[in-house]
């Protein structure tokens, strides 16, 4: 499944790197503790988090995530968007809480 399919179905707002939305998403990971995300997420994951700090871009790049979804109406810091644009890491935002975002993406992945 491509990232742009998720963005469209979930009505996510993309903050940067539209050119990379054709990326393949192979799984998902939710987490707010960076050390945990580094330890346990996989490449190709769409990462769902409430963190907005620029460190999330470093983590997502390191783990080769497909993109980052910031949840619950939180907005990424300015530094975060700049860094993401430089690294080509798409950042999307949603006003839904993690549980709903994940529930819907999981549904898209398993039943479409």
């Amino acid at each position: 499944m491509n990232l742009d399919f998720i963005v469209e179905k979930m009505e996510l707002k993309c903050k940067c790197c539209w050119e990379n939305l054709r990326r393949e998403v192979s799984g998902g990971y939710v987490g707010d503790l960076l050390s945990d995300v580094i330890a346990n997420s996989n490449s190709g994951d769409i990462w769902v988090t409430r963190q907005v700090h620029q460190n999330i871009v470093a983590v997502a790049t390191l783990k080769e995530h497909a993109g980052i979804i910031i949840i619950q109406g939180a907005q990424p810091d300015k530094d975060t968007i700049e860094k993401a644009a430089k690294e080509g890491m798409p950042i999307m935002v949603s006003s839904l809480p993690a549980f709903e975002v994940v529930g819907k993406i999981y549904h898209l992945m398993h039943y479409t």
Binding site: G27, G28, Y29, V30, G31, N40, V48, Q72, G73, S95, L96, P97, A98, F99, E100, V102, G103, K104, I105, Y106, H107, H110
Partner: peptide, 24 residues
């Protein structure tokens, strides 16, 4: 299970988020 799988399974059974949406 990771949180992604845990939330996905529960959502599939009709459990919903305790809040639906945040307004800025």
């Amino acid at each position: 299970y990771i949180m992604f799988e845990t939330c996905g399974r529960l959502f599939g059974e009709g459990i919903i988020g305790c809040i639906r949406e945040i307004c800025a």
